[in-house]
Each structure stands twice: as C-alpha cells, then as structure tokens.
Nucleic acid binder design. Sequence first.
DNA 1: CTAAAAATGTAATAAATGTTACATTTGTAT
DNA 2: ATACAAATGTAACATTTATTACATTTTTAG
Lengths: 249, 249
Amino acid sequence: MKNHDPIRYLKNQFDFKSDFLFSELSKEEVNRIRSSFEPIRFKKGSKLFYEDGIPTGVFLIESGLTKKFKTVMGGNEQIFYIYTNGDLLGYHALLSNERYQDTCEAIEETKANFISKENFLKLLDNIPVLKENLLRNLAHEFGVLANTIGILAQKTQNVRLALFLLIVEERYRKYDHLKGGIRLSRFDLANLIGATRESLGRSLKEFKEKGLISIESKAIRITNYERLFAILKREGSNQMWLNEQNLRR
Amino acid sequence: MKNHDPIRYLKNQFDFKSDFLFSELSKEEVNRIRSSFEPIRFKKGSKLFYEDGIPTGVFLIESGLTKKFKTVMGGNEQIFYIYTNGDLLGYHALLSNERYQDTCEAIEETKANFISKENFLKLLDNIPVLKENLLRNLAHEFGVLANTIGILAQKTQNVRLALFLLIVEERYRKYDHLKGGIRLSRFDLANLIGATRESLGRSLKEFKEKGLISIESKAIRITNYERLFAILKREGSNQMWLNEQNLRR
DNA sequence: CTAAAAATGTAATAAATGTTACATTTGTAT
DNA sequence: ATACAAATGTAACATTTATTACATTTTTAG
C-alpha cells in the first residue's frame, strides 16, 4: 500500500515533515521547549522575517499559513514552500550563521510561538535528540528542494500546476481541514509554479473546463483526482503513478 | 569589496562550500577522520550511488567531477549540483534515514575517499565540531537550492545559461584550474539549466556569435565576463550586479 | 586503424508561455 | 453603503522554447 498511494508519495517527496522534529522527546524535554515559547501573532500580509535580515530566532506555527519566498533578481518572487500548523521555520539562517536567505510572509492570520536564537541554541545543546531530529529534517528538506527543482525545471506549466494543486491541497488540509478549499491568490499560485499570473489563469480555466477543479470566486477545489493525476502521468512514467485506486480522498 | 564582487556573490549563493566541513578541527580529529578513509576510484560514467539505493556511507572527493541529479518523472534527468575536489557527498540520505533521493555519477575520472555509514556516524558522535559544521552546511545548502529554484523557475533560458556558465566555470577552476575550459557535455549542460539539448545549442551559438564565449570542440570558455553578466543584469536588478569593475578573472 | 555508436550542430515548424491591454469582480476603508 | 483600490478573467499577439529531422563531428570498441 505504501508505495501505491500517490498522495503519500507526494507527501514524502514534497513535504518537509517538520512536525516530526519534536518526536521522541521526553515529556520533560517538551516542557523545556514550551517554556521558551513567546506567543506572537501575524496578520495577513505581515512578515515573520525578511531576506537579508539578521536572524533572531525560530518560529513554531500554531495555526496559520505562511509563504516562504526568494526575491529573484528582476523583482519577481519565487515561493518555494508553504508552511502551516506545526511547522518550524527560521532555523536555516540561524544555523548557517548567515542572514535570512528568504522572506516569510503570513498569507493567512498566523499564530506562532517564537523561540529566541539564544534559547533555541541552548535547547539544541541540551536536548541531543532535538539536534538529531533537526539534522535529519535538514537532510530530508534537501531532497524536497531537489524534487522541486526537477519539477520546475523540466515540467510544463500544466503538470506543475496539477502537482502543486495536489501538494497545496494537503497543506490546506492541515491548515483548516480544507474547509474553504485552496484560497491562494492567483499571484501566489503563479509564483509557486513559476508562471505568470495570466498564463496560470489559462491553465486554471482549462482545468476547470475539463472538470478537474472547481472555482468559486477565489477558492479552488479539486473535483477529480484521477484525472488530475492523469496529467502528471501523461508526461511522467514513474512507479509512483501506477495505481489510481486509492487516490480518492 | 565583499558585496561588490559578483563572482563572490555567486559563490555564496550557489556553492555548497562543503570543503568548509573540516574547518576548525584539531589535528588529531582530522587524523581520526583520515583513518576511516577507504580510497575508491570511479571511471567516467560510473555511479557513486543510485536513486532509491540504500545508503552505505559518504564520499569525500579528492579529485574529479561528479554530477548529482534526479530522474524526473518522464525520464529526463535534472542536475542540481556538480561536485568536485574537496566536496563531501552522500550524507543526506544517510542522515535522513531515507534511501538515496538522487543519483551521483562521475563525469570525469574521480578519486574519492569513502567513509562507511558506521564510521561516519561514529565520527559525528565523537567530534562535536564536525556535527556542528555539518548542521551549518546543511542549513547553507538549503539556501543554495532555494536560489536554484528561483533561477530555474523564473529566468529565461539565456539568463539561466549565463548564470550556470559562471557557476560551472568556478567549479572547473577548482577541479583543474580551468585548464581545458568547461567540458560539460551538451546533454549535461542542458539538464543543468533545464532546457533541451537543441535549445541549449541555439543559446550557445548566440553567445558565441556575440563574443561572450568561445567554443573549441567541446570546451567552452568565457571570453567576456562583463557582457555575460550584462545578460543577468538586463533581467535582474539586484544590488549584486552593481559594480562591474572586479569581475575580470 | 577502422567501423559503429554517440554526441553535436543546425534549421524548420509546432507548441507553450509571456506580454500587453482592458473588462470585471472582489475586497477595503471611510 | 459607497467609492476606490486591488485582484482576477480574458483575449490577441509576440516571443521563447520544444520537437522533429537530419548532417556532421567526435568518441569508443574491436
């Protein structure tokens, strides 16, 4: 079953699984982490941190949705990850002793717990398992970004859109159980799949007409998983897309 | 000076700096690492490890050139990094406890030192600084891949080519002091910049006619850095390209 | 050294995507 | 509730890139 569930495959290949960071910790260790939490809220559109800014700590998202992007020379933004409930972020710059390499902005009202640099580094030193987990996660993230590179560099717009719709839907599932569908702005969705807004619109329309998705005002819902996967399959041929039995949600 | 040297900027943004891994180690620690080396050679075209294979250890390249790529659904390969002298590789899968997520293949005769999984994990446990460095490197690599995503997703073929020529040239500089120019196969270069071989050919021809590069049989040499940078600049507008004084090599 | 295989160069054509321009809808602040 | 701003939808057209199809060169195996 494991390898025949395409959704699970997607999660393995395109999800950071940063909620896994706190697994295998003792009650006491979890409490020690909790005690260094400083609750903080971000309104839609406000930024958790800025490219080139000096890192001050990390954020554990309690609830919300944020996009992490790079400003590519020329002014465009390229989103390369969407974080939500349970995700930890902001540790890359901190660990690499560099400035933030990217910007993180709330795309929905976000409640987070901030851990200061000092406290976070202390926790890492005092809780060996945490450091192990972080190391493991960083190594996993490498694979996720490598996968993303492959898709963005080699796949046509429609395939990229189909894939990211499936990925983003999972993210929204975690965020709010998909109550309101996928509500990414067209701008953000375009910057996620590496296309222009207008061009994305064309693909969305095509998908809608083919009955793969439905759109009510802004919200996108996937209405036909089989055929959405078929788009991936048409131009892909890996073992991952073999069965289509269990991709209904 | 630091921020005004575009080549240095490229190195920071697109180089893993994995040679930095062994910095700040004591003589004794370096020796401990050395003593677990098992020399191994790879002929051009042979593989250090395979996607989906079970990780057995890590490789420290003594001399040579290898490409790391993913097989993207559909059969194409997407190269996302080129490793050379002094680079350590193979630790991602090992640390994330996953199978190899990518394939690494020698594109030139490569001499490496292998460290078995067991030994490597032992070294990490016994040499705290090594683990710190690895953590730091992984965090840095994240930024490099994010940069790569931005370029591949947002830039036109000519910009991607210009940029990767500059990056790859630095890699060859480290490999053999650029003795024979850049000798990547057209196939590999295309898979690095995310283009087809034929389409790459057109861009190369254009660059050649404009005097940016010269091509003798297979080898590419950059002949005009200013104008190659100008291609990046035309479509980019970051602080990185401000001065062009010191980009002559 | 030679023949076969692989890699490379090139051009015409097709397809995909970006650009421009504007109409329409939705969201927001007063 | 209204008016303005922002986001979205859409279409014509331009540009970029992929595809197809060979000729030519280089490399490799025997």
